[in-house]
Amino acid sequence: MTKKEIEAEIAELKSDYVRIQGDLEKATSFGVNTSTGEKQLIEIERQIAELNKKLDEAKKA
């Protein structure tokens, strides 16, 4: 994966994160179970952290 590809993937994940976070806020206001959305956010956070490590490695190379 190139540096630009990693940066694009991070940007896409951040966009997904914001969208899901907004959906969760709406669901919470209606009293809907949000555990699935919360799990998705945790997974996105993990993926972003992993890609940030790859990006750091790519910058050092």
Rank of each mutant, 00 (worst) to 15 (best):
I10R: 03
K26H: 09
I20D: 00
F30D: 15
I6P: 02
T28K: 15
T36W: 11
V32T: 14
D16I: 02
E5R: 07
L51Y: 04
E38D: 11
T28I: 14
K4A: 15
E50M: 11
K39C: 12
A11N: 07
L41I: 06
E12N: 13
V18I: 08
A49L: 00
R19M: 08
L41G: 13
K53M: 07
E12P: 13
E45W: 06
Q21R: 13
G37V: 01
K39S: 11
A11W: 02
A11Y: 05
K59C: 02
E5M: 08
E38Y: 07
K60H: 03
M1G: 05
V18W: 03
K60N: 07
A58N: 00
K26R: 10
A49E: 09
L24C: 01
E25A: 07
F30V: 07
L55T: 00
K39A: 15
I42P: 05
E45A: 15
E43S: 15
L24G: 05
I48A: 07
K60W: 04
R46C: 07
Y17D: 03
T2M: 09
E12V: 11
S35E: 04
M1V: 06
E9G: 04
A49K: 08
Q47W: 11
K54V: 03
I6M: 07
E7M: 10
T2S: 11
